[in-house]
Amino acid sequence: MSERKVLNKYYPPDFDPAKIPKLKLPKDRQYVVRLMAPFNMRCKTCGEYIYKGKKFNARKETVMNELYMGLPIFRFYIKCTRCLAEITFKTDPENTDYAMEHGATRNFQAEKLLEEEEKKITKDREEEELNNPMKVLENRTRDSKMEMEVLENLQELKELNQRQASVDFEGMLGTYKELEQREKEREKEDDERETQEMLERALVKRLRDSDSDSDQESESSSRPKKPSTDRPTDILTTDRLADTQGLSVRGVKKAKVESWERSVGGLGGGGALGTLVVRKKPATSVPIPDTTVTPAGSNTQTVSKAAAIVPTEATKPITAQNGSSSLSLLGAYSDSDDSNNSE
């Protein structure tokens, strides 16, 4: 097992290397090598993009009849990863780069083209200055002018940087924060003042309303109260008092007729009917009015009739023993007055 690891092998004394047969191979023989794409390219067949650094199993061969300063040039064959189309490129030792041959187009050649253009301009300028001394002077003058412009621009940039360096950004930020804080405090004070003014106006209005209410109450209390005539028989009591004070019989009759019309007209209403109809009380004796004829002009019969018909506060019979109502009594009373007047 250890023999396979030895570095030196045994050659017998009669070994002659010239007797070993040589293997004859063609000069354009191809070898399979593993390489990476040297630049970005795009396949012409399917348009697939192949980025720089992608690995391929490529075939390598030596380009016949092409040398650069004794250095051979190699060609590589790869296949597209999508359509398996063949793409070839070769080495370019003159520019230390690779050159695309066919099957794809190289991408992002702007930098390379710019460098080639600069090299071409420099070469043409050197050739022109070699044969024309005036051209050399013009080129030097142009170069010196360009250098002065570059120096001026550089000086301006330095001054600008110095001005910006002298600015205190921290101080500016602090001042801005102070101004912002003052503005917020001022707005807060304004809001508080407006709120206070609104509260004061509301308080004044409330005081005014309370004063007006108290004035109205005092006026209402100072006004005299009118006597209420809720009961229909109150006016009859008033008429009786007027008769006792010596009023004429005709005026008493007119007041009685008006009271009768007022009471009859109120029968249709629920409120007036509710005041007339009361709960039935035990039957009481009703005095029979005196029908004796007295001389005209005497008030004795009228007063006695009024006293017999109009009930007092102590005795208010609504229905008599024989079932007659207060309205029938009032009607009989009015009829009796008419008969007395006719006599």
Rank of each mutant, 00 (worst) to 15 (best):
A307D: 15
E258M: 09
T122P: 01
Q245L: 15
E117P: 00
A332W: 10
G53N: 04
P72L: 02
G103M: 01
Q216C: 08
D143K: 14
S334L: 09
F74P: 00
I78V: 15
T105D: 15
I288V: 07
D234P: 00
E192S: 06
K79D: 09
A110R: 10
L154D: 13
R201C: 07
Q196D: 07
E149Q: 13
P13F: 04
L130D: 11
L247G: 05
K188H: 13
Y176E: 15
L25D: 05
L199R: 05
F15V: 02
M64Q: 14
A104E: 00
E343K: 09
S259E: 03
K123R: 11
R201T: 08
L67T: 14
E219K: 14
L25C: 04
Y77N: 13
Q301V: 03
T175M: 12
A99E: 07
P311C: 01
S339M: 07
L84T: 11
E194M: 11
S212M: 10
F39I: 01
L114H: 05
N65W: 06
E128M: 11
K205R: 13
G323A: 06
L23Q: 08
G297I: 00
M1K: 06
L157N: 08
V33G: 00
D239C: 13
E117Y: 13
R106A: 07
A314H: 08
M36Q: 12
A272F: 09
D338H: 05
F169S: 07
K253R: 11
L23P: 01
T88K: 10
N65C: 03
I20E: 10
L154K: 14
E111F: 02
P232E: 09
P232C: 02
P227K: 13
R201V: 10
K60G: 00
K22V: 09
K184T: 13
E197M: 10
T284N: 01
R201Q: 14
L7M: 04
V33E: 10
M64E: 13
K184H: 12
T62I: 12
K253L: 12
D215F: 06
Q245W: 10
L173Q: 14
K316I: 08
L71I: 06
S248T: 15
E187P: 03
R262M: 05
R82D: 03
K158M: 12
V278C: 11
Q155D: 15
N8Y: 07
M146R: 11
E116G: 12
C80Q: 01
V310P: 02
M134E: 14
L71W: 03
L199P: 00
E343W: 09
V293P: 04
A85M: 02
T96D: 08
G331M: 12
Q109R: 05
A165P: 02
S248N: 11
K254M: 06
T312Q: 06
Y31E: 10
S326F: 15
E200I: 08
R206L: 10
A320K: 12
K145I: 14
Q216E: 13
L160N: 12
Y176W: 09
E156I: 03
L329S: 04
P289M: 04
R140N: 14
